[in-house]
Design a protein around this nucleic acid. Structure first.
Lengths: 242, 242
DNA sequence: TTTAATGGTGCCAAAAGTTGTCACCATTGA
DNA sequence: TCAATGGTGACAACTTTTGGCACCATTAAA
């Protein structure tokens, strides 16, 4: 087990069980007593507040208020920026406005690098169209749980995805594409794919897709999708956002 | 330089420069060619889409659409849930509805644990009131950058915070509180603090606070803020959300 | 008071992971 | 053809992580 994974396992275990002894934790994560003690020290170093009491009946306890103290201010800041950037993107579709970037750079100095990385990932993979009031976001579109397993595999393993598609006129066709992106234009979800037969990008409304299957034996390379300023393979889609 | 740090540096560099050769990267991050190639492989393994072309004029290029493949599906899911949960909280102020919790638990299996940890942190420290349409969120409230350093210290070190406060009627008073939470009710930010003099929680509009200082020598324990169902020290504030 | 359970520290050798060097291959454009 | 580029495998040097041990301090129960 990785050191990082183990740290997470320890935190999870403490969160779950409330109180645990070092030996119990060591047993649970499959490491030695000494290692767990070192992990605890490292976690404390990272800002986790872990109470400990020696003696019979003692043990370790994760302060339920932990988390908050370390990250609180920084995170609300970042969250505001996160949303701002998403909104800016939605408005003008600039991957990064200079402003947001500067803000993030400033914050970058106060946050641990992993957090920044995760936040940037968030920003990088979020494509949001014009949004209705936030209250409606709980209906950000049906999450098409039945379709997702096949999609996940196709995305992860870069395999062709084959599915039945019913177009706007109700015609049923069978399509096979290289999945390139997911796009949310609430309340609709789209799959953006490269259609090798038509040698072009195509977008598909998720709710019109059925029976997706991963095509075995295929393996594609990610297409180079130029993403500068307004050049975007689905810009047309964005303009007539519902 | 740490392996993790180096990975981040490489991604940043690629993001910035657009195209770079392995040797240039190696030079930049101060590692050998082989190591950078190993890093590239690791990053690809993590889901980054990095185009590469051998030969003269070739090089590495980070797909701006990267992140999509690995994290995309999961992250948009999570993001939707994140907002949903925040909205639910804002509406009924349930820290977790059973639904959202179940959704997160499901997703927990597909995401790397660090990401989950960060998301839970997000949720733990996010208090959002009723929100105007997302377009307006870029004006989610002024981020009171001048106040933040003192706040950060007070929160982190659990010290009393002393400041001048101008109340709704324009009266100027000097207050000293134990900072407990930040609250965003766009476009206003509030500090929720425990006022030892008045033995009660008090909330303060950030834009009415001036000259905050950390009181040396003080050290308080986090108050137990009952956060079950409707019991919340600032529920009154939420009801008359602007 | 004694005892067993608990957290905590320092030290060191073994184990595991990371890195650099080198040789070599494939592709590309000049 | 040639030089620039990405890519792979092997191996030794180096660095980090881990486990084991001895030992200390504290605590509650016997």
């Amino acid at each position: 087990m990785n050191i990082r994974t183990r740290h997470d396992a320890i935190v999870r275990s403490l969160r779950r069980s409330g109180t645990a002894t070092v030996d119990a934790l060591a047993d649970e994560v499959g490491a030695s007593r000494r290692t767990v003690l070192r992990d605890i020290a490292a976690l404390r170093d990272q800002g986790f507040v872990i109470h400990s009491e020696p003696g019979r009946g003692g043990g370790l306890q994760l302060d339920p208020q932990s988390m908050q103290t370390t990250a609180r201010l920084a995170v609300v800041e970042v969250f505001a920026l996160l949303i701002s950037v998403a909104a800016m993107r939605a408005a003008g579709f600039l991957p990064f406005s200079g402003l947001a970037d500067a803000g993030l750079a400033k914050i970058e100095k106060t946050l641990p690098p992993e957090k920044i990385r995760d936040l940037r990932r968030f920003l990088d993979c979020l494509h949001v169209g014009k949004l209705s009031p936030l209250q409606d976001l709980s209906d950000m579109g049906t999450i098409h749980t039945d379709l997702l397993p096949a999609f996940e595999t196709a995305f992860l393993e870069r395999r062709h995805l084959k599915f039945d598609y019913r177009d706007a006129k109700g015609r049923q066709t069978c399509r096979e594409v290289e999945p390139q992106a997911m796009l949310i234009l609430p309340p609709l979800w789209y799959l953006v794919g490269w259609d090798p037969a038509r040698v072009d990008f195509r977008h598909f409304r998720m709710d019109r897709i059925s029976a997706p299957t991963v095509v075995e034996g295929t393996k594609f390379r990610q297409r180079h999708v130029p993403f500068e300023k307004d050049v975007c393979p689905y810009s047309s889609l964005l303009e007539r956002s519902p």
